[in-house]
């Protein structure tokens, strides 16, 4: 069973066009408070967690099919080199194939120790960041945008590795800002660090 969760603090209407187009028969859930990110310590989209029939996590949060090829995109034409596009699609297909193999044969499920070794460790700063984000979303939704912005900016400062927090705060500030020059500058500042760490198979 696929459960797709939209991290959308602006609400369901922002996710609806994509959901309508997907015409999926699996659950499409709306997470306005980024509750799932808090519970599982997620930092970007798309990320996935694999859960077995007993409700046990068998793969920790990981990038779900996306790659860093976009970092070489031509920003004027918004296009990728054919080779990059090919590799990007191949990586996505490989991830989908891995999910299918797990469903049919159990392949790629990790041992409990391997899952634990790859769990993201939550610090008090990250926990504070989540609480400030939650307060910021509420303030914005209740007519206190400037104060909400400040809480969300502080949330992002406390958890700089959370791209979701940064991009969502930016998008609330101004639609489209989540992929603005400021975003690209922040991405390039990663240097050798991945934006989408590849899953380990």
């Amino acid at each position: 069973m696929v459960v797709a969760v939209a991290e959308e603090s602006r609400g369901a209407d922002h996710a609806r066009p994509w959901i309508d187009q997907a015409k999926s028969d699996y659950w499409q859930l709306i997470d306005t408070e980024h509750r799932l990110e808090d519970l599982y310590n997620l930092v970007n989209v798309p990320q996935a967690i694999w859960i077995d029939e007993k409700g046990t996590i068998v793969r920790p949060p990981e990038t779900a099919g996306s790659t860093d090829h976009f970092r070489r995109m031509d920003l004027k034409t918004r296009t990728l080199l054919p080779k990059d596009q090919e590799e990007r699609l191949a990586a996505r297909q490989a991830y989908v194939d891995a999910v299918r193999a797990w469903v049919t044969s159990g392949k790629h499920a990790l041992s409990a120790n391997a899952v634990r070794a790859n769990l993201p460790r939550i610090t008090p700063e990250m926990a504070e960041s989540r609480a400030r984000f939650r307060l910021g979303v509420w303030l914005r939704a209740n007519g206190r945008a400037a104060e909400g912005d400040r809480q969300m900016a502080e949330a992002s400062r406390l958890y700089p590795d959370s791209w979701s927090m940064w991009r969502q705060a930016a998008d609330l500030d101004e639609v489209g800002k989540a992929s603005s020059p400021a975003f690209w500058k922040r991405v390039q500042a990663l240097g050798d660090k991945p934006y989408y760490p590849p899953p380990k198979f």
Binding site: M1, A6, E8, L36, V45, W50, I51, V103
Partner: peptide
């Protein structure tokens, strides 16, 4: 607007994935 809980899916493998429009 229909509430859905992960625990309703016990007994099935679940591929839990996030995405966003932004």
């Amino acid at each position: 607007g229909v509430p859905r809980s992960l625990s309703q899916l016990r007994g099935k493998k679940v591929f839990l994935a996030t995405w966003a429009s932004w």
